[in-house]
Amino acid sequence: MNWYGLYTLFAKETQRFMKVVVQTVLTPIITVLLYLVIFASVLQDHIEVYPNISYTQFLIPGLMMMSIIQNAFANTSSSLFQSKMQGSVVFMLISPLSNLEIFLAFVGAAVLRGVLVGIGVWLAALWFVSLPIFNVWAIISFTLLGSALLGALGLIASLISDKWDHISAFQNFVILPLVFLSGVFYSVDKLPGIWNQVSYYNPFFYMIDGFRYGFLGVSDINVLISLSIVSTFLVATVMACLWLLSTGYKLRY
């Protein structure tokens, strides 16, 4: 392993988003707070998903996870795609970095951005409502798994895309619907028939459910099952991403 090279690329990817921290970390936090203000204030007294848990408390972990994974995806997809477009990706490609090292550096930075946004949302949300922490390991595990999974998906998206349009299509037609149908705003049990069943094929549902369990101690699915399902998806996505990198698809001609 070229550890120093890996560290350098990770540091570069981290600096890249830290240089525009308002756009990459602060803005997502504010966006989530807007969701929180609107949904929580409108629905607070109308919806009770779990007994003795306010809707705001229910909502916050979901919103946290949503922002974690969206930002992890945005980080890898925009960074690699941009350097592909600018041609500066060649500097990485001619260096003695393996596909695995490149993968780890990009996904590592994506995880870091996800974690920072997640912590930011959490701290900001504490102004609104007190939120228990039931199991910190579940919180950490689902944060890491979820952001790594979306970081890897972001890499795949940037590898197969030819235009910015393709990236945003991926974001708007794949990631966003999966997030909205994953029970961020409601319990999927409240969904009618087919939508309810479809939700169980949505990996994001298990991420959100397990993550929420970490705070509230209640979940729709046994947290260990969620953990293994999310891990399985992560492994499959990582394999697909590494395979795509190894083919050199749209990268090494």
């Binding site: 070229n2 120093y4 090279g5 560290y7 350098t8 690329l9 540091a11 570069k12 600096q15 500097f91 990485m92 260096s95 003695p96 970095l97």
Partner: peptide
């Protein structure tokens, strides 16, 4: 920064 990064990829 760019030169340091590039050297870093080479382990330097």
């Amino acid at each position: 920064q760019m030169l340091r990064l590039q050297a870093g990829y080479f382990g330097l």
